[in-house]
């Protein structure tokens, strides 16, 4: 009281006047960062198995990737991996979730860029990853195609030989089956289409087949009417 507090305060500031300054000298001296410091999110393409755990655990939809199904194996092939860093909140959930440790934060915290587009980082599949496989990967693809073509041809033959049996799997009513088999005999194109679809996608084939039938029915109805008149 009575000014003692004031003098004590003055004493404290005076004491600090002669103490060492604690200001960090960034950017002249880089700050010391803890080992766990989260700066910029980095991705290692080689390790990634495209499991998608990171994408699912990210709260802000920062991460996304594109894959391609390989034909000879069930494994997905990672084509590109995108980090849209502007939405990242450095929560570390993606890093913790990744089973292969391909994501990690480095110590670079100077993240500002001149344009918004620069923030988004897209990792493309490195060429050397494909080189080793490419040699045998290419013929496989050709083989694949010709294999499919053979199947379609076989299917077409079977359809022409015994349409009722195969079509029974797709259509329910006898009448419809009859109509369609007639249609296929008269029109080779329709038969080819149905055969191809049967090989590739059975469900779609059924739908298309049903579509053909209804269309043909309509045509016939109209033809009948025209005849009467």
């Amino acid at each position: 009281m009575n000014g003692q507090g004031l003098i004590k305060g003055l004493g404290i500031t005076l004491k600090h006047f002669f103490q060492k300054e604690i200001t960090e000298q960034y950017p002249d001296v880089m700050p010391e960062l803890a080992t766990r410091f989260r700066g910029c999110l980095q991705f290692e393409f080689e390790k990634c198995i495209a499991c998608g755990i990171c994408v699912n655990s990210c709260p802000n939809n920062v991460l996304s990737f594109e894959t391609e199904k390989s034909e000879n194996s069930k494994k997905k092939k990672l084509l590109s991996y995108t980090i849209d860093f502007q939405y990242c909140m450095f929560c570390n959930l993606c890093v913790e979730g990744c089973p292969k440790d391909c994501l990690h934060f480095d110590h670079d915290f100077e993240l500002s860029t001149f344009s918004r587009d620069d923030i988004k980082r897209v990792y493309l599949r490195p060429a050397e990853m494909d080189e080793e496989k490419e040699a045998d990967a290419a013929p496989v693809q050709d083989e694949q195609e010709s294999k499919e073509q053979k199947q379609i041809d076989a299917m077409l033959k079977a359809l022409q030989k015994n349409p009722q049996k195969i079509l029974a799997k797709m259509l329910e009513q006898e009448e419809d089956i009859g109509i369609l088999s007639e249609l296929m005999q008269s029109n080779e194109k329709t038969a080819g289409k149905i055969a191809e679809l049967l090989v590739k996608d059975k469900e779609k084939a059924a739908k298309v087949a049903a579509g053909f039938v209804t269309k043909e029915k309509k045509n016939r109805l109209q033809a009948e009417k025209g005849g009467e008149e």
Binding site: H16, F17, Q19, K20, E21, I22, T23, Q25
Partner: peptide, 10 residues
């Protein structure tokens, strides 16, 4: 400068 020194700044 002086106020900075009082506050342990530079």
């Amino acid at each position: 400068k002086v106020s900075a020194f009082f506050q342990e700044r530079l």
